[in-house]
């Protein structure tokens, strides 16, 4: 069974105006020019490589870090490289108010925690979240704590199917686990 509470240092994907960037599409997360790469371990270097101000993300991020983004993160293409590039870097969670539908499924099916937090904008506006803060998130209950600022907030807990796939360690193992459709 995978960890239900995870902890990590956050990267706030903000633009020049200090707000979280919205509608970060799959072309900005992982550009077309590298779609021929089929080995996941080689994809990390290109994560956010086409997002203004964040081209050096792969060199700054460390394994275990969280990514925090604006509304509709991962809109666009079905390319799974846009999820895999974060897995390759060891990013352990992505938090956003909403996600592109296929992006969300790809992440869920990879057993990668993508967590929705509709009120995220408010926490950013009130400066309750900043790059470098450490968050604790309980994926099952949705309880979240900012360890640096000692503040509590809530995120959407994982749905049942998301949690089952996460526990199984990915879609294929979930299919074999006998949990499915219970």
């Amino acid at each position: 069974m995978a960890e239900k509470t995870i902890r990590g240092k956050i990267w706030m994907l903000t633009g020049t105006d200090g707000n979280l960037i919205e509608d970060i599409d799959t072309d900005q997360i992982y550009h077309n020019a590298f779609l021929h790469i089929t080995d996941i371990s080689q994809m990390g270097a290109y994560a956010l490589g086409n997002l203004e101000g964040w081209k050096d993300f792969s060199r700054k991020a460390s394994a275990g870090d969280f990514v925090v983004a604006g509304r509709n993160f991962g809109a666009g293409s079905s390319r799974q490289q846009a999820v895999d590039c974060f897995l390759a870097l060891g990013i352990s969670l992505i938090l956003a108010p909403s996600f592109g539908a296929i992006y969300f499924r790809n992440a869920v099916n990879s057993g990668f925690p993508v967590i929705k937090c509709p009120a995220l904008k408010d926490f950013v506006a009130s400066q309750q979240l900043k790059t470098g803060d450490i968050l604790y998130i309980n994926l099952k209950t949705g309880e979240a704590r900012n360890e640096i600022r000692d503040t509590l907030f809530s995120v959407e807990p994982m749905s049942r199917v998301q949690e089952e796939i996460y526990d199984a360690g990915g879609l294929f193992l979930y299919g074999k686990s006998g949990n499915r459709g219970k």
Binding site: S78, Q80, I102, N109, S110, V161, L171, F172, G175, G181
Partner: peptide, 20 residues
């Protein structure tokens, strides 16, 4: 509907998939 690469691989193997 569009889906991702792992899902397709999994359907190739199992002939089924979850959908909401």
């Amino acid at each position: 509907a569009g889906i991702g690469r792992s899902e397709v691989a999994s359907i190739w193997a199992t002939n089924e998939i979850w959908l909401r």
